[in-house]
Design a protein around this nucleic acid. Structure first.
Lengths: 225, 225
DNA sequence: ACGACTTTGTGCATCGGTTCACAAAGGGAT
DNA sequence: ATCCCTTTGTGAACCGATGCACAAAGTCGT
């Protein structure tokens, strides 16, 4: 199911993909400050990673640096953007316009580069028809139609947990294969559909775990066994 | 800097810690539905992971299963909660009461188990004094005082990017060592301080990357070289 | 034109995490 | 009491990611 020797190694490690946006942000900041070239060391510091890791990550995209000099900021921004697919414009639909959905709709970082909130959908007749962040909130019955009409390819789920799976199934049925899920449920999806999950309470629980460790720290000896 | 043979292996792998909240959620759901015992296979399905992984994860906490039967749901809930430090109550402060901060303050999942929003802080005189989710919004000048007075040990940063580092430094200066950062910046913190980052635009960019791959998919041959 | 210096790109050792596969451990039936 | 069946807990192979350390490749000054 893979083509191991297919032309070049176009398979970029997942861990690398997850860091590219970080590099991109750091590079944008540098471009704004008029910095033309940057060394792997400096960029690594700005992105908060090890410089060897950064070089290896960038080497997966190609050989875009100049030895003895560094990387051309503008050129690298372009290459990373292209690799991430940000040179095109992605239509995003947000389903669920509660507190979180509203925050997401108004979140500047979305629109910034490559993404455009193209639709807001909710089930509550109270909010359907409202205008939020310049967009009309549409009824959940229209979900499939709206997605097709607006060419939405990425859906953000900000619904209550109970509604998430059904909405998920419905958007998949009209061809959506990329979902960002904020609802605290494990979605089950067919092969080929990508789900990324953001869960606030999980992050807090991980913090609590470490905090507890620190607190009990050196002299923690009480334990059921 | 580590104690390799210190009593027992109390070091739970980071990857395991990140999954414990997932198991906990699945277990809560089962407890509510009156399920008393669960096999690793069933729990793994509910949590969306491999059953061998689940067993290895749980084995790090101790030997809480019964061979031939499975795990006692209630007992396991208790053990995981204790391990994660959710048997105590954590006071959380949210700094930055914009759209996102508001959504977080109202987010039920926070309060649910172990966590309590104990303070809301903002710099904007327009919102200071407002009541959100039953809490009075306090002025950023009071930051250190509020944290100490309310016994806050976890801080959620929902400020604009430009303000995040300064707020971060200030809360660290009064002893906070656990931070959940929603601002799109790399925070620099001293050793011993834990920062977890949630970045909406990064998640979207990762989705875009995969979506692009799928779209261009099998017949993608255009490439600068 | 050349040599000293800088910085990239990568081979290699290492590490943490995942998965398989099975022996050990318990329950329940006879 | 014994045997069979189920399910846990884990040894061991595997896999991907990390980071060191250095050779290759380029720049800049003389």
């Amino acid at each position: 199911m893979k083509s191991p020797s297919q032309s070049r190694d176009r398979g970029i490690p997942e861990a690398t993909v997850a860091r590219l946006p970080l590099y991109l942000r750091a590079l944008h900041g540098m471009a704004e400050r008029g910095i033309a070239t940057v060394s792997s060391e400096d960029l690594a510091v700005a992105a908060g990673v090890n410089s060897a890791k950064l070089r290896k990550d960038l080497s997966h995209l190609g050989s875009y640096g100049t030895r003895g000099v560094g990387y051309d900021v503008e050129y690298l921004v372009y290459q990373i953007s292209r690799e991430l697919g940000l040179t095109q414009d992605w239509a995003v639909a947000i389903v669920g316009v509660g507190n979180l959905g509203r925050a997401l709709a108004n979140y500047g970082g979305f629109v910034s580069r490559g993404f455009r909130v193209a639709a807001l959908v909710d089930a509550d007749p109270e909010v359907v028809g409202d205008t939020i962040a310049g967009l009309n909130v549409e009824h959940i019955d229209e979900l499939e139609a709206v997605i097709k009409r607006r060419g939405v390819s990425i859906v953000v789920l900000a619904t209550p947990a109970a509604a998430a799976q059904e909405v998920c199934d419905r958007v998949i049925s009209v061809g959506v294969t990329s979902i960002l899920n904020f609802a605290p449920v494990v979605l089950s999806v067919p092969e080929g559909v990508d789900v990324r999950k953001v869960d606030l309470s999980i992050e807090l629980q991980i913090l609590a775990f470490h905090e507890q460790r620190k607190a009990g720290g050196p002299l923690m000896a009480m334990d059921s066994q």
